[in-house]
């Protein structure tokens, strides 16, 4: 077997009976030199596999990173009639998250603290401590929020009072409509709102 024939054998072996064989043979009879021919096949293989792989990966990657690309805003939810938030008091309120998924169960429920300063001024605080997100509790008597995890403490206006939190409590954007208090919900408040 000549060197050329060996090369040819190898080349055709690589693609089994997929029809490349004929092409390779055709190429061989057309008198193309063997080295570039094999090089071409390899390049073609790498190229096609690369393209095939990429278009297969595209939907997979898109599927996985999908959640990071969605944007949510202006998802207003009702917290209730203004009358359940007495002036000067801070009250616990809950709502169903507007961007919930069908399998969320109870985890779609969300809690927040509503401080009514007066009839037209509110503060709606995220339940999550600004340190690491644990649920803060309001103590009416000392007018403090305390966190059970690492001892973050906040004053009634949400500013940091003590402990490790780097900042005050996160706040929801609120509005009053038809005698009801609404907030723009839809995510765990985080540093995005810190402006």
């Amino acid at each position: 077997m000549s060197e050329q024939e060996k090369q040819q054998e190898k080349g055709s072996c690589g693609c089994g009976g997929c029809g490349c064989e004929q092409k390779a043979k055709a190429a061989a009879t057309a008198g193309v030199t063997p080295a570039p021919r094999r090089g071409f096949m390899l390049k073609l293989g790498v190229g096609l596999l690369g393209i095939g792989g990429a278009i297969t990966a595209l939907p997979i990657v898109g599927y996985l990173i999908g959640p990071a690309t969605k944007r949510y805003s202006n998802l207003w939810v009702e917290l209730g009639e203004l009358s359940i938030f007495p002036h000067g008091a801070t009250r616990f309120a809950t709502f169903l998250n507007p961007i919930r998924q069908p399998t969320d169960g109870d985890s779609a429920k969300t809690a927040c603290w509503v401080r009514c300063i007066d009839a037209t001024h509110f503060q709606v605080f995220a339940i999550n401590c600004a340190h690491l997100g644990c649920p803060v509790r309001w103590f009416e008597q000392s007018k403090l929020f305390m966190c059970p995890c690492h001892g973050g403490v906040y004053y009634q206006d949400g500013t940091r009072a003590a402990g490790p939190p780097p900042r005050g409590l996160f706040e929801y954007v609120w509005k009053i409509e038809g005698g009801k208090l609404l907030i723009d919900a839809g995510r765990l408040p985080g540093l995005e709102e810190s402006t």
Partner: peptide, 10 residues
């Protein structure tokens, strides 16, 4: 990416 959405859920 971690949570599969903006909130902890399904």
């Amino acid at each position: 990416l971690l949570l599969g959405g903006p909130i902890i859920g399904g």
